[in-house]
């Protein structure tokens, strides 16, 4: 194998890694965005972490609402009373899981955002480098906002 092909392999693997980092950064940022917004709203309205969790839960449930309320799922769960209880249980679990997942997602989004930014700086001005710098910076800012919001929320909850 000549030199160029081995250099090419390294370059292509680096480019694929950059694409993967960006996708993961976006994924974790999306996870962070919902509670981050909810937390910011909650902090702004000075009502503490309870409202944050309620808004967060409502946003998560809104995305699952159509699925859970569809006739097929209703039939699957059985009677209306049983369905109501299951719904409450599911909502409760989702909110609990979300509160645990959020700081990890924010940290991972921060890490992958930093990697995207780093890859962009390394690529230079051309070949999508500037775009990577912008994307990485936006993700870093959002994930940082999410982390701060979570810390504020957690501190508010403890107080």
């Amino acid at each position: 194998m000549s030199d160029i092909t081995s250099i090419y392999q390294k370059d292509l693997l680096r480019s694929r890694r950059a694409r993967l980092y960006f996708k993961l950064a976006v994924l974790f940022t999306v996870v962070v965005l919902v509670p981050a917004f909810a937390s910011v709203i909650a902090v702004a309205s000075a009502l503490g972490s309870v409202l944050a969790i309620i808004i967060m839960g409502a946003l998560v449930l809104a995305s699952l609402g159509l699925l859970l309320l569809s006739p097929g799922v209703r039939n699957f769960f059985g009677s209306a009373a049983g369905f109501g209880e299951t719904m409450t249980g599911v909502a409760d679990s989702i909110v609990k899981i979300y509160v645990y997942i959020m700081p990890f997602a924010a940290t991972l989004a921060f890490v992958f955002g930093a990697l995207t930014l780093f890859m962009g700086i390394r690529a230079g001005k051309r070949d999508g480098g500037t775009a990577s710098i912008v994307k990485g910076s936006v993700i870093l800012a959002i994930s940082l906002a999410g982390l701060i919001a979570y810390i504020v929320m957690a501190t508010g909850g403890a107080a």
């Binding site: 160029i4 250099i7 090419y8 370059d11 292509l12 480019s15 230079g124 051309r126 070949d127």
Partner: peptide
């Protein structure tokens, strides 16, 4: 996509 050009063994980035 993913085809790279090298000049004297150094990757060339094109202005688009």
């Amino acid at each position: 996509k993913d085809m790279y050009v090298y000049v004297n063994g150094k990757r060339t980035l094109f202005e688009r």
